[in-house]
Design a protein around this nucleic acid. Structure first.
Lengths: 241, 241
DNA sequence: TAGTGGTCTAGACCACGCT
DNA sequence: GCGTGGTCTAGACCACTAA
């Protein structure tokens, strides 16, 4: 029809809200697709599009030959696969803050250039952040983004927002769609230990992340050190295919 | 039509093979959907179904108004989101082996019962494994699975296979679809240190995993200790919605 | 403007789970 | 056998991109 939003997304939102409101309860079956057709006065394709989207996000579960029910597990549908640090922390009801942030232009190191797939003489922004949860230093996050992706807009906008990903999306039209994390456990260097207020050699989660935008272009490489004793990374993994 | 496999899956396989064979090259555009329709003599819905499936798995990237191209990034489409330990190790060309395996029946601890969402008096199998990569001990993996899910079949089948998930799928008709990992970095306990051949307190990746089957039923809880200096967990995260 | 994918219709037949 | 979702057809109009 007309409106900005496609029908199937409106239907999706409607069903999503009914789940959240408890109108459709956990484990309960939704009306059949045929009924949803007449309920929303759309074709089956449209209904199925909406349903598929909710299944993909873990809200609904389809049981062949029986029906479609609200996912009856504790696997919270509200944990999307890719969340920014800020999102994760806030989801847990913890106050997150940025203790220190510095943005500078620099040339990439060998490794950074490789990860970003750029030349060594192509300038990048280095975004250094020290983050806290409940006012305790918990994480050192260094991001590298090629300067070319942040042209024509004020980089200081990033400093004003808590979340780098939000800033990228709202101010630079870059939406991070995929990220590949390499997660390991290492002993804190003396530099890291000092900032995180732990002992040298204490276990630290070390994450190297390569992030891709909506066109599968590499836009960010970051290295993250997280205090091992105060934080754990939640990851939802879905079988594909 | 008739055959066991739906059309769109055959088309999917065909396109997938053409990508692997280099017939469609990285970054190159596929024929338009209209052309694929006449190429395969099917309707647009069917073509789109095949394409959507490949997009979901990261093989293809759609550019609005332009076309659909082979994903032009280094983000390997061959890293699915959810892989068993064996898969991950072998993907890296490393020889993986099980040094020690013990399967026993036991009652769950408080935590295990909670994670599996069962009662304290419901028996579980405890599957204890020490694994090696290139003959070096690298990982201690303890899985708990409620006995009720493994009824009517020989549990020792698990011992004969390298991969627990493969055994579950092939012998018990349980397919792990989703897992929620809680990943942290801790110092090795003296027990863990001894087995992994490291010092007490050395950094170790510690993963608590809750795994769900095709019906979103919790079937496995496991705790995994991995040597921090020899292994890193690769995780591909996708933005959903 | 022409070509692409995005959305949608109004049907159809099939495979599966239950009774 | 009946109801459910799974697959499929043959169209249609729209929004976006590029020439």
């Amino acid at each position: 029809m007309v409106r900005g939003e496609p029908f199937y997304q409106k239907i999706r939102s409607d069903i999503e809200n009914k789940i959240k409101d408890g109108y459709y309860k956990q484990g309960e079956y939704l009306p059949s697709e045929a009924k949803l057709e007449s309920l929303y006065k759309v074709s089956r394709t449209t209904v199925r599009n909406a349903v598929r989207s909710l299944v993909d996000d873990g809200y609904l579960t389809i049981v062949r030959g029986k029906g479609t029910k609200v996912t009856p597990s504790k696997l919270s549908a509200s944990y999307p696969n890719l969340m920014s640090f800020t999102d994760v922390i806030q989801k847990q009801g913890i106050k997150s803050s940025v203790l220190k942030m510095k943005i500078s232009q620099t040339f990439p190191t060998q490794e950074v250039a490789e990860k970003l797939d750029i030349d060594l003489d192509e300038k990048v922004y280095e975004i250094y952040r020290e983050r806290a949860a409940d006012d305790e230093p918990i994480c050192i996050h260094v991001s590298f983004i090629p300067c070319k992706y942040l042209e024509g807009n004020d980089v200081s906008l990033i400093e004003k927002k808590q979340s780098l990903y939000k800033a990228l999306e709202e101010d630079f039209n870059i939406s991070i769609q995929t990220a590949q994390d390499n997660i390991s456990a290492i002993g804190a260097s003396s530099h890291v230990a000092k900032i995180l207020n732990i002992e040298k050699g204490d276990p630290v989660l070390f994450i190297k992340r390569v992030a891709y935008d909506q066109n599968n272009v590499i836009v960010e490489y970051s290295e993250i050190n997280i205090r091992g004793d105060r934080y754990s990374q939640m990851v939802t993994l879905r079988q594909r295919l």
